[in-house]
Amino acid sequence: MKLSFEGVFFTYSTGVRALDGIDLSIGSGEFVAIVGENGAGKTTLVKLLNGLLRPDGGKVVVGNWDTAEYSTAQLAGRVGFLFQNPDEQLFERAVQREVAFGPRNLGFSERKIASKSMSALKTVGLADHAEDNPYDLAPFERKLLALAATLAMDTPVLVLDEPSIGQDAAGRRRIGRILRELHTMGSTILLISHDLDFCAEYAERAVVMANGHILADGLVEKIFAQNDLLQRAAVFPPQLVRLAQALKMPTAPLKVDQFVNAYSQWHRRKKRA
C-alpha cells in the first residue's frame, strides 16, 4: 500500500515545530529506513500515519485514504505500529490477550484472532510466554511482544520505531529476518533506526531527517556512502562502508558477503597491477 506526505507541518502544543514541510511518497511494497539525529522528527512523522497525531498543515495519505477523514481505529487496520517505547503499547495482563487485542478490535473472527496471535507469538519467539504477564517480561521481550501485537494485525503497512534496541545479536537477526519475510510478502515497511548497520542489511531506500526536514532520500547504497550528508544528521556510515572508504575501495558494501566479494575482486586486481 502506498503512502504520501504532502507539504506536512506539525507543531507540538509546547510550540516546538517537529515537522517543517515534509514531502515524501513511498510506493507499495517498499522497505524504507528513516534515519537521523535525535529530535529530527522521525517518530512524529510516522505517528501521523495512524492518526496518533494530526498534521497542522498538509496532507497524509495511506493507500487511497486521506488520514484526515479516518479515525485512529480505522487507520489501525492499515498501518501496524511498533512504538519506540513498548510501555506506550502494552497494557493487558496476559501476553496472549495483548496480542489478541489488536485483531479483536479490527473485528477479526475468533478463529482468525487465535491463529493470528499464536503465529505472531511464534514468529517473535514468545510462544512459551503466552500465559505470562507482560510486566514480568524482560525489556527485550516486551519489545518483541509489542512486535508480535503489531504483526498479528496483519496490516499492509508496518511502521517500526527502533525495533532493534535492547536486542542482542540473535534478536537483531531474528527481527531482521521477520522484516525481510514481510517485505517479500509485499508489505510496505518503514523502519526507524539509529543502527545503520542494521538498516544497510535490510532496507532498500533511506530517508535522512534533521530538524523537521528531509535532508536526502534515495537508495541505501547511495545515501549511506555520503559522509558529509550523514554527518549533518548526526549519523555515520555503516561499518562496512567506512571500512571500504578507508581502503579506498570503489564500492559501498552493505553486507558482509558483499564486502567479501568486493574485497576479493579488488584484491585480485591490485595483485595483477
Binding site: 537521523g36 539525529e37 535525535n38 527502533e162 545503520l196 554527518q231 549519523v235 555515520f236
Partner: peptide, 10 residues
Amino acid sequence: EPTSQLDPRG
C-alpha cells in the same frame, strides 16, 4: 545500555 536510543554522534 545508556545509548540504546542515541543517534551515532550522541
